[in-house]
Design a protein around this nucleic acid. Structure first.
Length: 605
RNA sequence: GGGGGCGUAGCGAAGUCGGUUAUCGCGCCGGCCUGUCAAGCCGGAGAUCGCGGGUUCAAUUCCCGUCGCUCCCGCCA
């Protein structure tokens, strides 16, 4: 095919190239045969060029052209010529020219397609995934994959300029049961033993700090055997970062610089940095979420005090029993029907609320719902919630976390339904001061809320043991438009402090030793103070691409049940493979007692 | 583990309060056509209505079960 190798791509021809003889290689995107004149839209990664086969074109062009069908892979030799003025297509980058074919060669034929390669193709996702190679031919997928590449490139570019080394860590490591379930790899040479796929390079990157590589990054694949979601896959890519001799402020500055660079170079979008910060408690109180969408207002308000002086017994009792009542004022939603409010209530219930109380604000005051219980404090309600006629007021009473979360979910739903969030905006914020420990009701013990190696904020160092629930960690999440994009922390590098943390969560030294003794050992040899962060690449690209699932920005994703429809993995394997690995398959058991020790114990980033 | 949605030609959908030959668009096959760019016109093929069972004279439609995908809670990043 030497003489039919492309000399230009399908995206580059313009009136500058008139009369030039060119060779194009690509796929038949459209085929319009008028009997006399015949048009082909030839497509490659770079664009589309219109090929014309004139009625009097050479048989070397005309004969093969008759056979062309969608997605035939072809080579075309021809001459660039200007289109007649009235035939210029302003929608096309190459729309002022066309290539008059002198020779066409069919490089590869294509069977009837399972779906059209088309921006408007709305084939089911599992079909798209089965024929992913066809799906990826579409310009919309090509754009997303290009964007992903661009983001990865800009990350590497920025990190390099900031003096970071990209260092790879192993993909087969020791199983250190962390927050999530491990994927395991059986060892052939060591019967009965397993490697694990890393949930993140957490321990290795900390050890790299001990090794003196004080600025490390990597774009590793991370594996977690948990149920998938739109924004979650069994296998995802992280922008893993760790730095020595730093405080939280240094990590923030670096991350803000990185994201500003990536958005500027890849999207030509200027981020508003430094990013706003919210303490975890504050974010929960104001937005009912630790990953608030800041593109719209709708903030929650504290209502407990008024609730305890009102007549509504349910709320009075809630407050009397140590719970809280949260309110959400929805401007202009007073016309919501009973049915719409019911739907909001159902939504709140998914998140654990027992109900959703409401009232409407009219010109004459409060009306409907639970308003009759609050006649004596109506003015105070109007004032404290800043309510005015036409507003809908919503309330949830429960434990603090449930009340915030449930009403926060209602806030998000309203934001979506009322179209409050500008899809072209990226509103970043930091969520800081997460609690370090959480009380586990079932196991009746303290657990690491996030990260066993995360540093407590300095002011709690003396009182860790007295009130673990009050201890805030030097932990942070980076949030954008309602998605958690990154989380990180300053790590503990002091073995003594680490022991105190272990003891609070009831972790024996032997247990700690068994699970990640190698890290503790490393810390004995002059570990530097360090910390880091790990943004999720897939989610980042998903947001930048304006998509709703990370599957749209991964070339070959798994579906929600962990199957890859194209290669149909996972599959059974040959018995001889099992033999070599010293494995045998037992029938799945129906009754599987829940392990009590499956709690989140170490790194989660 | 739990809840919601979807499953009808190769693709996307309509239909069905049970009733003759299951409809439309795209694609596919054949023919016509000299300027289209989602080309157009004419003709044609193509569906055990996801699968299994039940109710019924009759089931794509009603009931039960099951499988697949998807969204969500839990879990998890």
């Amino acid at each position: 095919m030497e003489h039919l190798k492309r000399t230009v791509t399908c995206g580059e021809l313009s009136s500058e190239h008139l009369d030039r003889e060119v060779v194009l290689n690509g796929w038949v995107h459209r085929n319009r045969n008028h009997g006399g004149v015949h048009f082909i839209d030839l497509r490659d990664r770079y664009g589309i060029t219109q090929i014309v086969i004139d009625e009097d074109a050479a048989p070397e062009a005309r004969t093969p052209a008759e056979q062309l069908r969608f997605e035939y892979c072809i080579a075309v030799r021809g001459t660039v010529r200007k289109r007649p003025d009235s035939m210029i297509n302003p929608e096309m980058a190459t729309g002022t020219v066309e290539v008059a074919a002198r020779e066409i060669s069919i490089l590869s034929r294509c069977e009837t397609l399972p779906f059209m390669i088309d921006e408007r193709s709305d084939a089911r996702e599992d079909l798209r995934l089965k024929y992913r190679y066809l799906d990826l031919r579409s310009f919309s997928m090509q754009r997303k994959i290009r964007l992903r590449h661009e983001v990865m490139f800009r990350v590497r570019e920025y990190m390099h300029t900031q003096n970071f080394y990209e260092i790879e860590t192993p993909t087969m490591i020791r199983s250190t049961p962390e927050g999530a379930r491990d994927f395991l790899v059986p060892s052939r040479l060591h019967p009965g033993k397993f490697y694990a796929m890393p949930q993140s390079p957490q321990l290795f990157k900390q050890i790299l700090m001990v090794s003196g590589f004080d600025r490390y990054f990597q774009l590793p694949h991370c594996f977690r055997d948990e149920d998938a979601r739109g924004d979650r896959q069994p296998e995802h890519t992280q922008i893993d970062i760790e730095m020595s001799f730093v405080s939280r402020e240094d990590v923030f500055r670096l991350t803000e610089g990185l994201f500003a660079h990536v958005f500027r170079e890849a999207l030509d979008y200027e981020l508003d940095a430094p990013f706003q910060r919210f303490a975890y408690d504050q974010a929960m109180n104001r937005f009912g979420s630790d990953k608030p969408d800041l593109r719209f207002e709708l903030e929650l308000t504290e209502f407990s005090e008024i609730a305890s002086s009102g007549e509504f017994k349910v709320f009075k009792d809630t407050v009397a029993n140590g719970g809280v009542v949260k309110a959400l004022r929805v401007p202009g939603a007073a016309q919501y029907s009973r049915k719409q409010i019911d739907e909001l209530e159902q939504h709140a219930k998914i998140y654990g609320a027992k109900g959703l109380a409401w009232m409407k604000v009219t010109e004459s005051g409060l009306d409907g719902g639970v308003s009759r219980f609050y006649t004596t404090v109506a003015d105070r309600i109007l004032e404290e919630l800043g309510a005015s006629a036409g507003d809908l007021l919503l309330f949830v009473g429960d434990t603090w976390k449930t009340a915030c979360t449930a009403l926060g979910a209602v806030r998000s739903k309203l934001g979506r339904e009322m179209g409050l969030a500008d899809p072209a905006k990226f509103r970043f914020c930091w969520i800081i001061d997460f609690p370090l420990f959480e009380w586990n009701e079932d196991a009746e013990k303290w657990e690491a809320a996030h990260h066993l190696f995360s540093m407590p904020r300095e002011e709690y160092l003396d009182t860790l043991e007295q009130d673990p629930g009050a201890v805030k960690g030097d932990l942070y999440d980076l949030v954008c438009n309602g998605f958690e994009l990154a989380s990180g922390s300053i790590r503990i590098h002091d073995p003594e402090l680490q022991k105190r943390i272990f003891s609070i969560v009831g972790f024996s030294l032997e247990e700690a030793e068994r699970r990640f003794g190698f890290l503790l050992e490393a810390f004995k040899y002059g570990a530097p103070p360090h910390g880091g962060i790990a943004p999720g690449l897939d989610r980042l690209v998903m947001l930048m691409a304006g998509e709703n699932t990370i599957r749209e920005v991964i070339a070959f994703p798994k579906n929600t049940v962990g199957v890859s429809p194209m290669d149909d993995s996972p599959t059974e394997v040959d018995p001889s493979q099992l033999d070599e690995l010293h494995l045998s398959i037992v029938e799945p058991r129906n009754v599987e007692p829940k392990s009590l020790n499956a709690a989140s114990e170490t790194s989660k980033e």
